[in-house]
Computed example of a mutant assay.
Amino acid sequence: MRAWAIADMDTGVLLAVHHHRRWLPQASTIKLLTAVTAADRVPAMPQHRITRAEAHPQFCTCAGLRVGRRYSRAASLTGLLLPSGNDAAEALAGSDPHGHAAFIRAMNATARRLGATDTHAVTPSGLTAAGAHSSARDLLVLLRAAQANRVVAPFLHKASGPVGPLHGPSHVVYRATDYINIYPTAEGKSGYTTPALNTLVVETPMYTPAGRMHRIGVATLGSPSGYSTSGTRALTVWAAHNYDRLRRVGQLPHLPRNARGGHASPDPTLGVR
């Protein structure tokens, strides 16, 4: 992997790092920032109608949004965070009352407010774009913010959900993050582009050998094919097994004071790789 970071997601203490502040392409993991920004900027029932460019982005891992129809914020977030729909990302940006460009500016303002100072968004989808980057450390910041956001948090542990326009038929989409499908107590987001390779940020409740549960967060950037899930799991299990021997190597920014969200149950399969 090009970079990784491990943290206790309850305390924000960084437990181990490797190039954790290196600026790298982050692919679809940026959709966590898109979701948090949309929770603040996009009305629950927007009046925006989906354009052809939004429904058919240049590269489409898509949720199936239809041109000319309107979608609730919940439907768009489902399409964004489960199948990682680039059309849903563009639709949320387009639904900003002040337009797409204002939404991108708000994404970057949100990143700064959260303390994700290694992050710069250029697109809401995470597709390759000049100047776009994040870091392993910042992906953990963005995941904590998404988990703490009362609008976004419920979508992080859904395995499937409906996506359909207002007053129209819906279809079911499914979660595309392999790590969470294998370890369903986890929450997070994956991504892939050719320049970024595989990217992943997840939080897994794990028991330590002392019998205490800790929410272990791991962000990995630049994993070669076939190693994103297994490598991230190996880091998670290693951190849980060695938790009491690890020492603080850094600190994530504090969550906003009004942050509140639900969390998953502990993973009973400590040691399973």
Rank of each mutant, 00 (worst) to 15 (best):
Ser76Met: 15
Ser190Ile: 00
Ala38Arg: 00
Trp23Cys: 08
Ala153Arg: 15
Val13Asn: 08
Asp96Asn: 13
Val173Ser: 06
Gly271Asp: 05
Glu187Ser: 15
Pro169Asp: 13
Gly217Met: 02
Ser134Asp: 02
Arg260Gln: 11
Arg215Ser: 06
Asn198Ser: 12
Pro266Gly: 04
Glu187Lys: 04
Gln58Asp: 14
Val237Cys: 06
Ala259Gly: 15
Ala3Asp: 07
Leu143Met: 06
Pro209Asn: 09
Thr110Lys: 15
Thr194Glu: 15
Gly164Gln: 01
Leu127Met: 14
Arg49Asn: 06
Val172Arg: 14
Ala27Ile: 05
Val202Leu: 02
Gly68Asn: 10
Val36His: 03
Pro184Val: 00
Pro165Asp: 11
Leu142Pro: 01
Asp138Gly: 12
Ala63Ile: 02
Leu14Met: 13
Pro43Tyr: 07
Arg22Pro: 00
Ala7Val: 03
Leu255Ile: 07
Ser134Ile: 01
Gly131Glu: 12
Met206Glu: 15
Leu142Phe: 03
Arg247Ser: 11
Ala159Lys: 13
Gln251Lys: 12
Pro124Tyr: 04
Ala74Thr: 00
Ala3Ser: 15
Tyr183Leu: 03
Ala153Cys: 10
Ala91Leu: 13
Ala136Arg: 00
Gly231Asn: 06
Val36Cys: 11
Ala16Cys: 03
Thr269Pro: 00
Ala3Gly: 10
His214Ala: 04
Thr119Ile: 06
Leu270Asn: 09
Leu32Ile: 05
Ala44Val: 11
Leu15Tyr: 06
Arg73Ala: 01
Thr128Trp: 12
Pro266Asn: 01
Ala53Phe: 12
Tyr192Phe: 14
Pro83His: 08
Leu15Gly: 08
Leu200Tyr: 01
Gly115Ile: 07
Leu252Glu: 00
Ser228Ala: 15
His98Leu: 13
Gly188Asn: 01
Pro268Arg: 02
Arg22Phe: 03
Arg248Gly: 06
Val152Leu: 11
Pro46Glu: 04
Val17Met: 12
Leu92Ala: 02
Thr117Val: 13
Ile50His: 09
Ser223Thr: 09
Ala74Leu: 01
Ile30Arg: 07
Arg105Tyr: 11
Asp10His: 09
Gly85Cys: 10
Thr220Gly: 08
Pro209Met: 09
Gly217Lys: 01
Ile180Leu: 04
Val67Gly: 12
Arg257Trp: 09
Ile104Arg: 04
Pro209Lys: 06
Leu32Lys: 01
Pro25Asn: 11
Asn86Gly: 13
Ala44Leu: 11
Leu15Val: 09
